[in-house]
Amino acid sequence: MTDTPQPGKIHCRTIEGMSQTNYFVYIPSETTDQRRIFYTVHGISRNAEEHIHGFIAQAERYGAIIVAPLFLKENFPHYQQLGSSATLERADMAFDHVLQDVHEWLKIPPSPMHMFGFSGGGQFLHRYAMFNPKRVARMVLAAPGWYTFPDPGQKYPYGIKSTLEWPNLKFSMEKFLQIPTLVLTGDEDDQRDKDLNKTRKIDCFQGLNRIERAERWTAAARALGRAYNIPTDFKMESIPNASHAYESYLAHPPFAQQIFDFLFEAQN
């Protein structure tokens, strides 16, 4: 695939394979800092290009390239859980192809990555980080509906125990716990809306809404960090007036800046 990178433009690239994967890339108009690649993963509205638009100002300010994969519903209906099984529709593997293409096309190192995921994208992101903790430098999860808890007593994707569909899982939790992680929730995102997974299994263990679930997951990660005697940096922040709509997060002016500040603060 050939395409000359053009600063100040959104590129759409397609990777052919078992399942076609598209992704969007934005290259800043002025200078580009090769260390600053911002990966953003959409929610179930699959608005990858909109994600790019929402962060262009920060990309210009930080000299950061933005990469936004698009997981089409027909190819990756369960991208939030990385796939429907270890062998079917693996969105994380498709994402790895995106990384490889970005690496070859823009000559930038594929990892460690600074990543953001919204809603279903937050689900994808924290699970991707559990499977590949060495690749993720820092991450921001905004409003995931539910989580994979670092609990070996519960089966994946609820916990990290292997199943028939996901056999032989082995996670390096001590590495995962060392990823600085910010969980953002809208302070009005406590509704049990139609998109929220309301199964009893999730309600009883994770909580009744996205705020409770975020609190419990963050606490569980911190607790396991304490068990490993690892100083963890898992924290939660609230976005004022935000419900679950992506626009309501963007409507909070410091939202995008807050994400970049957290992801790239160590590089400033």
């Binding site: 609990d151 607790a223 304490r226 068990a227």
Partner: peptide, 9 residues
């Protein structure tokens, strides 16, 4: 879990 901040098995 909440009060101790440790995994409970």
């Amino acid at each position: 879990h909440d009060i101790c901040g440790l995994p409970v098995y």
